[in-house]
Computed example of a mutant assay.
Amino acid sequence: MNRHTARENAFQILFQLEINDRDAKEAIEEHTDTLEIDNFLKTLVEGVSTHKTELDQVITEHLEKWTIDRIAAVERTILRLAVFELKYQEDIPSSVSINEAVELANVFGDEKSGKFVNGVLSKIVA
């Protein structure tokens, strides 16, 4: 599984966890029944789940006229995923993490999601 696909799958699992209060490891196993369990996917899902409070704090510090609770679940999940990569995945350039997050937002969010995600992440890396 390439990293782009792993990110998409990680987003889907994390989104499910956002909606349903479940264990990350169980969600990974259920989601990957038909897929190979990818280490990058596992790192993303478990990392975001473990550091959720810290990631939300970083996001909150860079929001203008928004609160973390007002952000739609799709964008909030994508931001958490990207911020985890920015903070904990040193081998990934920040531009790649931001670009991947914007692509996810364009696919899974509405027409304004990509711009919103890009704006917040740009402030975080500045």
Results as ranks from 00 to 15, higher is better:
N2V: 09
R3N: 15
H4M: 08
H4S: 13
R7H: 11
A10Y: 02
Q12I: 00
F15L: 15
L17P: 03
I19S: 00
N20W: 02
N20M: 04
D21V: 08
A24F: 09
K25C: 07
I28T: 11
I28W: 10
E29M: 10
E29Q: 13
H31W: 10
H31C: 03
H31Y: 15
H31K: 12
T32S: 14
T32K: 11
D33C: 01
D33F: 00
T34R: 11
T34K: 13
E36C: 03
I37K: 15
N39Y: 08
L41I: 09
L44I: 02
E46H: 05
V48A: 05
S49K: 03
K52D: 10
T53I: 09
T53W: 03
L55H: 06
L55S: 08
D56W: 00
Q57V: 03
V58T: 14
T60P: 01
E61I: 00
H62V: 00
H62D: 05
L63D: 04
E64Y: 06
K65L: 06
T67L: 04
T67K: 14
I68W: 02
I68G: 03
D69P: 05
I71R: 06
I71W: 03
A73C: 01
A73E: 13
V74K: 05
V74R: 02
E75S: 08
E75N: 15
E75M: 02
R76K: 13
R76P: 04
R76G: 00
R76F: 02
T77E: 03
T77R: 04
R80D: 10
R80I: 02
A82E: 07
A82F: 05
V83R: 08
L86S: 05
L86P: 03
K87V: 01
Y88M: 01
Q89H: 01
Q89F: 04
E90V: 05
D91Y: 12
D91P: 01
I92A: 02
S94H: 12
S94A: 15
S94N: 10
S94W: 12
S95M: 02
S95I: 04
V102N: 04
V102D: 07
V102H: 02
A105Q: 01
F108E: 12
F108N: 11
G109D: 09
G109A: 07
E111G: 01
E111D: 05
K112H: 10
S113L: 05
S113E: 10
G114R: 10
G114L: 13
G114P: 14
G114Q: 13
K115L: 07
F116E: 09
V117G: 12
N118E: 14
N118P: 00
V120A: 07
K123Q: 15
A126I: 13
A126Q: 15
A126M: 14
